[in-house]
């Protein structure tokens, strides 16, 4: 009996974990590049030269070399939070079906959602840990946005789960028909893109470029961090964008083109959206996300 279990564990690790880790590592390597592409698109549309697309790599290396400053009031949660946040993004990258993991079976949609929630939980905790007002401000707003975005996420899962009769992401992707072009698919695509912007703290929900207390959500939470912990947070955030864009390309974007191209396209579109939109007032965000929910609702009914 125990031998069977061990053999089963080994099989699962060989079939699931190793391709997953490999894919997550590739995505991790590319993640700063995707962020660089978004920034470059924004700069070009602003008629600016802009930084190189590889600038994020240089920034990350710079932060990695610096010492980590800690506020005396912090506890172990403050140090663990970026590590756990990074690990959850990494796990999400393993679960999402993309390049190598189309046969991975442990990538369940709900587990994916709650794994990301684990990272958010610890980041929100750490934001309160340094005992300053900026962190609390960021944390409180993050909670607010996540409450509003969650129904849309759940409906985005439901629309695919009820179409493919499973919540396993890889099975959804295997059955995904990219040529399936319908009202429902287009609405779901638009709505999920709005969810991506909200989940990854992009404009118009949050401004990733500033530390101003009027605009910041995610940046407010990371304000106390420096050195390697800051590097981890940024890597995690970049990875999360790539994960969401992969999911978007693999399940929601109804075009029959290679996935890598879809991710690139997604990054460019995020750049364009960020240029043509202003940061929304914080309490207007609920209208924005309600629109996403309504679109998904119509999409499910029209299915």
């Amino acid at each position: 009996m125990s031998n069977e279990i061990i053999a089963g564990v080994l099989e699962i690790i060989m079939n699931n974990a190793l391709p997953g880790v490999a894919q997550a590592c590739i995505m991790l390597m590319c993640a700063p590049l995707i962020a660089g592409i978004i920034n470059k698109t924004k700069a070009q549309l602003n008629k600016r030269q802009g930084a190189s697309v590889f600038q994020e790599y240089f920034d990350l290396i710079k932060w990695w070399k610096k010492p980590t400053m800690l506020t005396p009031y912090t506890s172990w949660i403050f140090i663990m939070a970026p590590i756990i946040y990074f690990a959850t993004s990494f796990m999400a990258a393993m679960m999402v079906p993309g390049f190598l993991t189309n046969t991975v079976t442990f990538g369940d949609a709900f587990v994916f959602v709650y794994i990301l929630a684990l990272g958010r939980f610890f980041m929100c905790l750490s934001s309160m840990d340094a005992a300053t007002s900026f962190g609390g401000m960021g944390g409180a707003r993050e909670i607010y946005v996540s409450v509003l975005v969650e129904p849309a996420v759940m409906l985005a899962v439901l629309i695919n789960a009820s179409r493919y009769h499973t919540t396993t992401l890889s099975h959804m992707v295997m059955n995904y028909d990219a040529a399936y072009f319908s009202v429902s698919a287009v609405l779901a695509c638009l709505a999920f893109f709005m969810v991506i912007l909200a989940e990854n703290c992009r404009l118009p929900v949050d401004n990733p470029d500033t530390h101003l207390e009027l605009t910041m959500i995610h940046e407010g939470m990371t304000l106390e961090y420096s050195g390697r912990l800051l590097t981890l947070i940024h890597l995690g955030s970049f990875l999360k964008i790539v994960v969401f864009l992969t999911l978007f390309g693999a399940l929601y974007l109804p075009f029959n083109i290679p996935l890598v191209l879809k991710i690139f396209l997604g990054a460019v579109v995020i750049g364009i959206v960020e240029i043509i939109n202003n940061k929304m007032r914080l309490f207007k965000v609920r209208v924005y996300l309600a629109a996403a929910v309504v679109m998904l609702l119509v999409a499910i009914i029209a299915q």
Binding site: K66, P67, T68, M69, L70, T71, P72, Y73, I79, P82, I83, A130, T132, F134, L223, E224, S226, G227, R228, L229, L232
Partner: peptide
Amino acid sequence: CYKNFEVKDVTW
């Protein structure tokens, strides 16, 4: 990550 930690004063 577990290196280079410095505790001086309130950071921000």
